[in-house]
Design a binder for these strands. Structure first.
Lengths: 254, 254
DNA sequence: CGAATACTTGAGTGGGGTCAACGCAAGTGG
DNA sequence: CCACTTGCGTTGACCCCACTCAAGTATTCG
């Protein structure tokens, strides 16, 4: 839970009361085995969820059986905030590693939002950043070479891990199989393997037994064409017109 | 404006007062020439925007100059609702055709949301569906053949045009150049051209002078692996636990 | 220690990219 | 009204990136 707090506190500390409320809202703890689905395409979304430990993947399975990973969820991420406006999942969320999540039923989230307006904005911001990550993912799969795609994926994951304090300088855990990297980048396992060897051979990274080490960040980021703007990491929240800020929504009857 | 109303009314009619409020909120009308940017990467988001006429593209320009279209905005779409939680655009929005938009400053949107809670949920839902479209776009660019990608793009655009009443049975305007289709699908212009000829040759569609006609919807959708679930077109809004419904957020000081 | 599971490697192939023309329609200006 | 331009669509030749198939080698785990 501390990890999520750290993310929410990017633009200012939470007070003790807000933390208490968050803990009380995300109260339903659930474990997931590797490969297990925490939410499944076609089913009702289970609730707003916070990942406490492990890594998840949003993915879609195409009619021909191919799998495309749409996003990777890291510890501290809060996702599916908005699930209450839709009644059916259009994709699945599965555990890439053993994982622990904390689920908040939408009724609880909405009560939280009503009682703590500032939290509601912070939570909303999480889903906005999530959308920005989706866009970056599109550009990655659409217009980059295999080499650049994987480099970009590593850049994103490293920066996001670092943002929640889960990275050493230029190193972090990355317990993903090459098949998973392929599903995330739209590449075949075989080609992922070859690109990894290139990246290692160029002295940019090493990746062994679930540990990623970046030996030359500048070069890796350059090869990836990585621009971290889209992670919206260190921006102030308010739009800065000096005005008092924006509520978002309030309530809805039926 | 009627087009946007039609979308918002998917799950129940708006009353006259709500329509009046929407009109008053989206008051800043702006025209865009073809190729002109209505929002630019690196700049501040201009406000929550409703597309009245024409077509827009969200796009990202990669360091090597390649362009990837992330989403196509159709008349009636309301987008960048959430821009107020970020201070800088991570992508651009440009006009694919001459376009007219109505912009609502975020202060106005927030006032609207406070006064009309039901509208705030409806607006939020638009951004949720937008995210679902982004995910489908990823799967399209990542794991489908060129043929299926273009077929899928046509399926999505046709269904969305139809949803706002801008389509005849199995036909709609689609004034996009082949270069644009390529930027949307991650393909080269040349290959787009060849795939189009295949699609025509197979008798699935015709596309000429900005008009798309679908001759065999079943076959096209099958070739695309198109599953319209992600457009969340005809779902009830509420999560159906029978409970009264979920407010979302309320206000934020800072 | 045996059995999965993951990772490597090689050989062959094809989808889609690039480059380079060319056709054609719609301006545009003299 | 015609020469010129500009933008878009079309075609051909060539090539390479990444896929597939297939087999073999490490790891990991029960």
């Amino acid at each position: 839970m501390e990890l999520a707090f750290r993310k929410l506190e990017r633009s200012g500390p939470l007070d003790a009361e807000e933390k208490r409320a968050l803990r009380a809202t995300f109260f339903r703890i659930r474990e997931g085995e590797i490969g297990e689905d925490l939410a499944r395409q076609g089913a009702r979304p289970p609730g707003c969820t916070m990942l406490l430990k492990g890594m998840l993947a949003r993915y879609e399975t195409l009619p021909d059986g191919a799998r495309q990973i749409l996003a990777i969820v890291l510890p501290g991420d809060i996702y599916d905030l908005h699930g209450f406006t839709i009644s059916v999942m259009d994709h699945s969320v599965g555990a890439l590693t053993p994982a622990t999540v904390a689920v908040a039923p939408y009724e609880a989230v909405s009560a939280l939002a009503r009682a703590y307006p500032r939290l509601s904005t912070l939570l909303l911001r999480e889903s906005v950043v999530e959308a920005a990550q989706l866009r970056a993912w599109i550009a990655n799969c659409g217009r980059r070479s295999a080499y650049a795609r994987i480099a970009h994926l590593f850049c994103e994951l490293y920066v996001r891990m670092a943002a929640v304090g889960l990275a050493a300088p230029y190193a972090c855990d990355l317990p993903l199989t090459q098949a998973t990297l392929g599903d995330a980048t739209g590449l075949s396992v075989v080609h992922v393997n070859r690109v990894l060897q290139q990246l290692r051979g160029d002295g940019y990274i090493s990746l062994k037994s679930g540990r990623l080490v970046i030996h030359d960040w500048e070069a890796l980021a350059a090869a990836a064409g990585f621009d971290p703007t889209y992670l919206h990491d260190a921006e102030p929240i308010e739009s800065g017109l000096g005005s008092s800020l924006v509520p978002y929504a309030q309530a809805v009857a039926q």
